[in-house]
């Protein structure tokens, strides 16, 4: 029975991993062989990675990182405050809760033009700030909603005990609630990071030549000579790496955070 379960797990894992493994294979083949039929499995080369890193990709990588980390650093404290206020103080009642959720219901394209106009009006168009602010508009409510569930799952008696011990509401939040919510904060932070890291539409509309992010830079491999599949694959592998490493480093918190917050 055990080998059957293991076999099934391997099969499903392979099904999920196959696209990634195929991308890795394409990234390690010379451009001409990446999409040759029948599929080639050699000769292997790192040339695509060097080509990608020599072009604008390196800068895009830095831009993506700056934007995503700014969204997390600015958004997470605000989301934690909002999530806690919604969870414990019922601020704004059902109306505010619905408003937070409603931001996730809008298709991004609906907001693309208004955001473009707004950023131009404030002179932010083409800057990284335009991306940070736009992503915050989506990531903040998303992170707040995730944390709301997490805060609700914390036993209220812990906060009450802290009050009786003489803590003010702010001390309770900072010294008791936040340390206990660490897994939730990690989960919200990583998902906020991913949301910003992978975003394409707003990045295409709002970024300039110097502020391109990774997804936009990847789209530049669609040239007049055709799609440079091997370089796209190399770019995808490079863009997945930091997120995969980050997730691996904190996967314990991530799983705990996602499941705990989701239970209630």
């Amino acid at each position: 029975m055990g080998w059957l379960a293991h076999g099934a797990l391997w099969l499903f894992s392979l099904l999920f991993l196959l696209p990634l493994l195929w991308t890795l294979r394409s990234a390690l083949l010379p451009e001409g062989l990446a999409y040759a039929l029948p599929p080639a499995f050699g000769p292997w080369t790192l040339e695509n990675f060097w080509n990608v890193l020599e072009g604008p990709f390196g800068k895009a990588f830095r831009n993506s990182f700056l934007v995503a980390i700014s969204v997390v650093l600015l958004g997470l404290p605000l989301a934690a405050g909002l999530g806690y206020a919604l969870a414990r103080y019922r601020v704004g009642g059902h109306g505010l809760r619905f408003a937070v959720l409603a931001t996730q219901m809008l298709p991004p394209i609906v907001l693309a033009l208004p955001l473009f106009a707004l950023m131009r009006l404030f002179g932010l168009s083409g800057t990284l700030w335009a991306l940070v602010l736009s992503y915050l508009a989506f990531a903040l409510p998303f992170m707040a909603w995730l944390l709301l569930g997490f805060f609700q799952s914390l036993p209220r008696e812990l906060e009450e005990a802290a009050y009786v011990d003489g803590a003010t509401p702010f001390q309770v939040f900072f010294r008791v609630v936040l340390p206990l919510a660490t897994p939730g904060l990690f989960a919200a932070g990583i998902l906020g990071f991913l949301l910003s890291w992978n975003e394409f539409l707003f990045a295409l509309l709002l970024s300039g030549r110097d502020t391109q992010t990774v997804p936009v830079a990847l789209s530049t491999f669609v040239t007049q000579r055709g799609v440079l599949f091997a370089q796209v694959a190399a770019g995808v592998v490079l863009s997945v790496l930091p997120v995969a490493l980050l997730a691996r480093m904190v996967d314990r918190y991530l799983v705990e955070g996602l499941t705990l917050g989701a239970v209630k």
């Binding site: 008696e157 009450e160 005990a161 009786v164 011990d165 340390p179 206990l180």
Partner: peptide, 18 residues
Amino acid sequence: PERRPIGMVFQNYALFPN
């Protein structure tokens, strides 16, 4: 509560697990 001269023990202990 934080300004009342009280101490309290809860049914489920309410110790800070961290």
